[in-house]
Structure formats: structure tokens, C-alpha cells
């Protein structure tokens, strides 16, 4: 391979990794926010399905209603809103059950995954039936997901194409990650949220409304998961509903939260790494090692991180202390 060819391959690989990483990053950020409030929501996969279905449905129904007059921008905004709202609805169901009704977090999360995957595939298939075969959005909407070239910056050789020429959701995900780092570390509300996740009794005594923080963090987190799902159906599968499209990405996101040690900034690196691993086989001839072992790496790496943090007993990079445990004021 010529030198130019190698550079081109690396650039292509990097861009494919970003495409694979974006839904992972969004869902991971959502789950980090949720877990910071002390809710271990294992329903990420379900919320992503709900977002994937709602996103594509919103766009498709709008296009069907407007016909040729459909506006791409409106259609995409509807998809984004649909994805976020559907994911947030999943987070709301989870919050009502675990925060207000005090149901077991693990079981509720798994149920949300079963329910969300069911809802996604159910309505996705109905949409397909209604579209007469399979549901697909038109180029008017799809073009809105074209790469946005950053002025000047995208002209930098090699790096410009890699870093400053992506669709708007990629930039959005990065901005959310940066904002969340700032929010969790520098703002009062963010610190309060972390207090709720570490020690709800202390937070409660300090006058923080524990239930409100848990509800908000879980619903906003669910919204981010839903947005990640929307990206899968609208971009990864180019606006066509594919049965079972989320395909375990929600669980990779749950793994990524641990791998990134509950840090939004590290989640960006982790998502790019895990996303890159999932597409590596298309850019590098893998002969000796079976592709399944590449797919296994994220989970093994996560187990290793999990074990190391538990051995080190560090407080800095560990799961929020009250994560997974419901808070009952009168049982304090």
C-alpha cells in the first residue's frame, strides 16, 4: 500500500470509529448522569430502542404528512425531539418505579430493557407495515446528517477531515460531554447531584431534594440514551428501520460507564476506543485472531477495570457509593 493509501485508510477508519462511537458516547453520558444520582438504570438498551423507534417514526410520519413540502430541518428536529422524549419517558418510568414506588433497581432496569426493546421493535415493525414493506426516510431529511465542515479548521490536511468534518450529532455529543464534565465538577447543582449519589441521607439532611435530583438526572440521562438510539436508526442505518437495530449497544454503554470510571471526559476516549474496535475488522486484515475476540475486548477490559477499582478501593474512580440502592428517608 502506498503512503497516501495508508493515510487514507487510517482516516477512513477513524471516521468509521467516530460513527460507531457517537451512539455509545451519548448513551454512556446518559448513564453516567443517571448513576451519579444513585440510580443504576440497566434499561439503557431499552431506552435506546425507544429513542431509535421514536426518532425515525417522527421523521417518517412528518414526511408522510407533508409530502413534497417536507422540510429537512423540521424533520430532523422532530427526530431529535422524538428520540430524546422517548428515552426520557423510559427514564421517567424507571424513576416512578424506583424512586417513588421503591422497586428493586436491577429488576426494574432489566424490565425496562425488555419493555423498551419490545416497544421499539413493535412500533418499528408497524411503521414498516404502514410504509408497505419497510420504513425509510427520504434524502431531504437524510441530507441534514451530512458532514458539517468547520470553516478553515476542516482545511487542515488529514486532521481537518478527521476532527472537523462530522455530522451535527457528533459535535453535539462532544459538547454534551464537555458540558457534563463542567456541570459535575464546577456547579453547585452538579455537586449536589453527586452528593445524592454518594450519600443521599447526607444530601437530604443538607436540604437537597433527593427525589427531584434522581428524577431529573434519570430522565435527562434517559433522553441522552434515546438520542443515541435515534442516531443508530437515522444515521447508522441511514434512516431505515432495521429489526433489532440497537443490538447490544446499550450494554456496551453500561460497560463504558465503568471503563470510563464515571467521567464524561474519559467516556469520549472510551467510546472512540470501543467504537473503533467494533469496526476495526473492516480496515485491518484480521487473520489469526477471530473477530469474536475483538468483540469481546470491551467486556474483558471493563471487567479488568472493575476488578482493579475494587482492589484499589479508591474513592476517586469508583461507582457512586449509593448507586443501586434506593433511598428511604424513614429507614435512615
Amino acid at each position: 500500500m502506498s503512503e497516501v493509501g495508508v493515510v487514507q485508510t487510517i482516516m477512513d477508519f477513524f471516521n468509521a470509529a467516530v460513527l460507531a462511537a457517537t451512539p455509545l458516547l451519548l448513551a454512556t453520558l446518559g448513564e453516567i448522569l443517571t448513576e451519579k444520582s444513585g440510580n443504576l438504570n440497566l434499561g439503557v438498551e431499552g431506552m435506546m430502542y425507544m429513542g431509535a423507534m421514536a426518532g425515525i417514526s417522527a421523521s417518517w410520519l412528518y414526511e408522510a404528512a407533508m409530502g413534497a413540502a417536507a422540510n429537512g430541518l423540521v424533520s430532523v428536529l422532530l427526530a431529535v425531539a422524538g428520540g430524546i422524549l422517548a428515552g426520557a419517558l423510559g427514564g421517567l418510568i424507571y424513576s416512578v418505579l424506583t424512586v417513588t414506588l421503591r422497586a428493586n433497581q436491577n429488576v426494574t432496569g432489566l424490565t425496562l430493557t425488555i419493555f423498551g426493546a419490545g416497544i421499539g421493535n413493535f412500533f418499528g415493525e408497524l411503521l414498516g407495515m404502514r410504509a408497505g414493506g419497510y420504513a425509510s426516510i427520504t434524502d431531504v431529511t437524510k441530507s441534514m446528517f451530512n458532514n458539517i465542515e468547520m470553516p478553515l479548521l476542516s482545511k487542515i490536511p488529514v486532521l481537518g477531515k478527521m476532527l472537523f468534518s462530522h455530522d451535527f450529532v457528533v459535535y453535539m455529543a462532544v459538547i454534551v460531554a464537555v458540558l457534563m464534565t463542567w456541570f459535575l465538577n464546577k456547579t453547585r447543582v452538579g455537586l449536589n447531584l453527586r452528593a445524592v449519589g454518594e450519600s443521599p441521607a447526607t444530601a437530604d439532611a443538607a436540604g437537597i431534594n433527593v427525589a427531584r435530583y434522581k428524577y431529573l438526572a434519570t430522565c435527562v440521562g434517559g433522553g441522552l440514551c434515546g438520542l443515541g438510539g435515534m442516531y443508530i436508526s437515522m444515521v447508522r442505518f441511514s434512516g431505515t428501520w432495521v429489526h433489532g437495530c440497537v443490538d447490544g449497544r446499550g450494554w456496551i454503554a453500561v460497560a463504558l460507564v465503568i471503563f470510563a470510571a464515571w467521567s464524561p471526559a474519559r467516556a469520549m476516549i472510551g467510546a472512540l476506543l470501543f467504537g473503533g474496535l467494533s469496526v476495526l475488522r473492516y480496515y485491518m486484515p484480521i487473520k489469526d485472531v477471530a473477530t469474536q475476540f475483538y468483540d469481546m475486548v470491551p467486556y474483558i477490559a471493563t471487567v479488568v477495570v472493575l476488578v482493579i477499582t475494587s482492589i484499589r478501593q479508591g474513592k476517586e474512580r469508583a461507582q457512586p457509593k449509593a448507586c443501586g440502592i434506593n433511598y428511604f428517608r424513614e429507614e435512615r
Binding site: I93, L101, T108, L112, I114, F115, G118, I119, N121, F122
Partner: peptide, 24 residues
């Protein structure tokens, strides 16, 4: 009825949600 197969998961989820909630 041409109802997608995923109806089983939706119903299972709904029943579980209500049963989890009623424990309260």
C-alpha cells in the same frame, strides 16, 4: 391479527412494571 411478535415483550414489560409498582 398481524400484530408484531414484539407484542409479547411489550406485554411482559407492562405486567412487570405494574407488579413491581404494586409491591409498594
Amino acid at each position: 391479527f398481524k400484530i408484531p411478535l414484539a407484542a409479547a415483550d411489550v406485554l411482559t414489560g407492562l405486567i412487570l412494571f405494574f407488579m413491581l409498582g404494586c409491591e409498594f
